[in-house]
């Protein structure tokens, strides 16, 4: 299975592997960091990893639908970053800190 050809011929599997590693890094950032903005950055990292796999699959299958999907994901990610940063500003105005531990009890 692990021959020299697998290492030297870059195909879909290599890009999927890279995408999976980047996605897990983003997920670890969301789960483990305490700063709200770094958690948002983890979400951006996950979205980008998924974009990479979309483009790789699009190249493999030879049509452009994956490119369109990446276009949409980028737009949604920009909107999500705007909303997330507005929430971070709202948290900061209240607590003068953007640590998630101040914001874990939601009171109505």
């Amino acid at each position: 299975m692990l021959s020299a050809d697998n290492f030297l011929h870059i195909g879909l599997a290599h890009y999927i592997f890279l995408s999976g590693i980047l996605f897990s890094f983003g997920m670890i950032a969301v789960l483990m960091r305490k700063n709200v903005i770094v958690m948002l950055m983890g979400i951006e990292l996950m979205l980008n990893a998924v974009n990479l796999s979309f483009i790789a699959f699009s190249k493999e299958s030879g049509n452009l639908n994956g490119h369109i999907m990446v276009f949409f994901v980028m737009t949604i990610a920009a909107a999500e970053a705007g909303v997330g940063l507005a929430l971070a500003v709202a948290i900061y105005k209240k607590f003068h800190e953007v640590n998630i531990r101040f914001f874990e009890h939601l009171r109505g």
Partner: peptide, 11 residues
């Protein structure tokens, strides 16, 4: 750069 490698210059 990875997207460029994969032939998605516009993206």
């Amino acid at each position: 750069a990875a997207f460029f490698n994969l032939g998605a210059q516009f993206i």
